[in-house]
Write a protein that binds this DNA or RNA. Structure first.
Lengths: 185, 185
DNA sequence: ACCTGAACACCGTTCAAGT
DNA sequence: ACCTGAACACCGTTCAAGT
């Protein structure tokens, strides 16, 4: 099986999913692919570029957000769907945050959030600010929960995850944002 | 001059401030202190523990937030002050986010934000959610701006920073949150 | 008590040389 | 065109041995 950019990215997603970001090194990836480390650089410019590609995959793999007539409900549904998709892959929020830092426009669901907010009647500088606020809330929430998980994984504490409480807190935060957006003063 | 935990942390803050997180390695720190890398581990358990200490320093060094009677104005002022303090040190938001991930209670200004929100009449699960939302907004905003800066630093683009626009967006986001918190339904 | 010396098991990236 | 071999300049952490 020949090497290809696709196979490199696929394997990167697989390693991330199974072992986390700490184990996602170029050398580890090469080993997994049965190839010398230098070979990867024929298909990918750098580790950073690879991670941007990985982030893209993670966000596209998400469950289709249920369509809704009410734009506020649509924003809620999309935000919750993105959060749920990222929670499945360890350290995914870090990877997406890096991609968003390198190139904010490359993250498609961000632009989708922006479109939905415009339908809510938000516009101009307020639209940009609200989009950023939502993205920070999503990524922050996922990062916090994933860190909690791997903290309790090495801990002898209770096995029950803080999942439901974290989702409730996330949704309360969403409501605060959506309420704050309602009357454009 | 003998080595001490304090001197290690001080030097870590200095290296971070001048060269950024990528250059803040235990080995670099040891070189800067004129000592062997292993010596650091007598004063500090690990790099992670050191970074938590560094984050604490960064947040304590902030300008005292102007006191205000109006609790909403106080939240605004504190959030803006924390943001300004972090913007001065490269990659500071990443370091604080890590500390917040390892031990959320260790970050003092977080608890201060929580206290101010309670004075605003926010309570219960809503208080936790609002605090987290604010923290995510602050750290997300600083991360985004610091990444923009180091992107434009290697770029031949315009020298003018996106500072004023970013501050305005940050404050608009704050307003959305504070408006959303006003009527506890 | 505190530090050195030296090792262990790793990194990302480059690049001549091979096929 | 695509990959190997080998190197360059690094990492965090541990630990016997010295003082």
């Amino acid at each position: 099986m020949t090497l290809s950019r696709e196979r490199v990215v696929d394997t990167a997603v697989a390693v991330l999913s199974r072992y986390g970001l700490a184990d996602l090194s170029m050398r580890r990836l090469a080993r997994e692919l049965g190839v010398q480390p230098g070979a990867l650089y024929w298909h990918v410019a750098s580790k950073q570029e690879l991670l941007v590609e990985v982030a893209d995959r993670l966000l596209r793999q998400r469950v289709a957000a249920p369509q809704s007539q009410d734009p506020a409900a649509a924003v809620r549904a999309l935000a919750v769907a993105i959060r749920a998709a990222l929670l499945r892959v360890p350290d995914s929020a870090d990877v997406v945050a890096l991609a968003y830092a390198v190139d904010p426009g490359s993250v498609e669901p961000l632009r989708e959030l922006s479109r939905l907010l415009r339908r809510l009647g938000v516009a101009g500088a307020r639209l940009d600010a609200a989009t950023q606020l939502l993205v920070h809330h999503i990524l922050g929430s996922v990062t916090a929960e994933q860190n909690r998980r791997q903290a309790s994984a090495s801990d002898p504490g209770p096995v029950a995850d803080a999942g439901p409480g974290a989702l409730a807190a996330f949704e309360l935060g969403l409501d605060v944002i959506l309420d704050g957006l309602r009357p454009p003063p």
